[in-house]
Computed example of a mutant assay.
Amino acid sequence: MKYRAIIKKTDGWWIGWLVDLPGVNAQERTREELLESLRQGARDMLSLDVPFEPGGQMTTIDIPMPEWVGGCA
């Protein structure tokens, strides 16, 4: 599987997060270490067994496009 990652170097550190898996983020000294940490975070997140509790509901919600997006829709 492929997941989108936002990565950047700031103040001597590489930081990043996975757009498609909220909660998976990392900070490392090198780009390669960062990418490996993000991979491991994704593996950990996807291996969690999160039971669907009785009475729970799954739904979708509509979020308006932010103004800064402009004509990119």
Results as ranks from 00 to 15, higher is better:
1 M>V: 07
2 K>E: 13
7 I>D: 00
7 I>S: 04
7 I>P: 00
8 K>N: 06
9 K>I: 00
11 D>G: 02
11 D>V: 06
11 D>T: 07
11 D>C: 03
12 G>E: 00
14 W>R: 00
16 G>T: 01
18 L>I: 09
22 P>W: 03
22 P>Q: 02
23 G>R: 02
25 N>V: 03
28 E>A: 06
29 R>T: 06
31 R>I: 02
32 E>T: 07
32 E>L: 05
33 E>P: 03
33 E>F: 02
37 S>I: 04
39 R>V: 06
39 R>Q: 08
39 R>L: 08
39 R>K: 11
41 G>Y: 02
41 G>W: 06
42 A>L: 06
42 A>P: 08
44 D>Q: 13
44 D>A: 13
44 D>N: 12
45 M>P: 10
45 M>N: 10
46 L>Y: 05
46 L>T: 04
48 L>Y: 09
49 D>G: 12
49 D>A: 14
50 V>R: 14
51 P>G: 07
52 F>C: 12
53 E>C: 09
55 G>R: 06
57 Q>V: 13
57 Q>E: 14
58 M>E: 13
58 M>A: 15
59 T>R: 13
60 T>W: 13
60 T>S: 13
60 T>V: 15
61 I>Q: 09
63 I>V: 15
65 M>L: 14
65 M>E: 14
66 P>H: 06
67 E>T: 15
67 E>C: 10
69 V>S: 10
69 V>P: 06
69 V>Q: 11
70 G>I: 11
72 C>M: 15
73 A>I: 11
